[in-house]
Design a protein around this nucleic acid. Sequence first.
DNA 1: CTTGACGCTTACGTAAACGTAAAGCAGAAT
DNA 2: ATTCTGCTTTACGTTTACGTAAGCGTCAAG
Lengths: 131, 131
Amino acid sequence: MTSGPEWTIAQIADEFGVTHRTIRHYEDLGLVSPERRGTQRIFHRRDRTRLKLILRGKRLGFPLEEIRTIVDLFDAPRGRRAQLEYVLDQIDARRADLEQRLKDVQDAIAELGEFERSCRSDLDRLTPPTP
Amino acid sequence: MTSGPEWTIAQIADEFGVTHRTIRHYEDLGLVSPERRGTQRIFHRRDRTRLKLILRGKRLGFPLEEIRTIVDLFDAPRGRRAQLEYVLDQIDARRADLEQRLKDVQDAIAELGEFERSCRSDLDRLTPPTP
DNA sequence: CTTGACGCTTACGTAAACGTAAAGCAGAAT
DNA sequence: ATTCTGCTTTACGTTTACGTAAGCGTCAAG
């Protein structure tokens, strides 16, 4: 039941465009926990799923510690009602955060658009009028 | 012509919810350059505009050095054609970056939605059926 | 006139997120 | 048998983004 495709640290690092050190650092922080076969790390699909989430979290500027709580959320046991309600609360908090970011990005893109138009207008005025 | 409303560092820091140290740090990095009246810093509207951009950039996870180049872009001289074309290029680059982020945020929100539905469904199954 | 309230500089400290040797094991190839 | 190749740990170094004193100037109120 622990079977399925497997990857070495080199393959994972290469595929995700990070270094071995980065992966090990993430393991130190509990962001991933690959299987150990003897001394070597063996990565499974679960680890890849988490890594995708981690790297997206990073692109969005979340600190790794916060990313860990988020990623753990997805893997959390959902047996008891209390647990499920806690998870749902966390989801709401996360969504609020993300929606602030969404607004920030949208605003930034909009401002960039305005600025571009202003620049283009300057450029037009600079162009000698068609004779 | 250099007139208009003015603010002290305390007022600015308070209003933007950061510390004096943060403001001075931004000045060290050239992110803001308040007027100096004697030894004291006097902030004008221009500085506030830049600070808004800076803090949004931070919320979006950009490093301060990169933020500086972006903010400088808005204040860049736009006299010569070459300058304008350079600025327009930069705008395109920025926009590409922001649109990647936009996608990341949207994906994250969508996944959160899926996860929530899954949790709610678990919760429903946990609830004893209405007799 | 001295005591705060603010502001300034200088400078060392710190947390996060890795980078970068250094040194060693383990199996495969020459 | 030893030389690679790939993986491992340990541990100190580095960059970013400030925090946190230390020590001084200044102006107004008590």
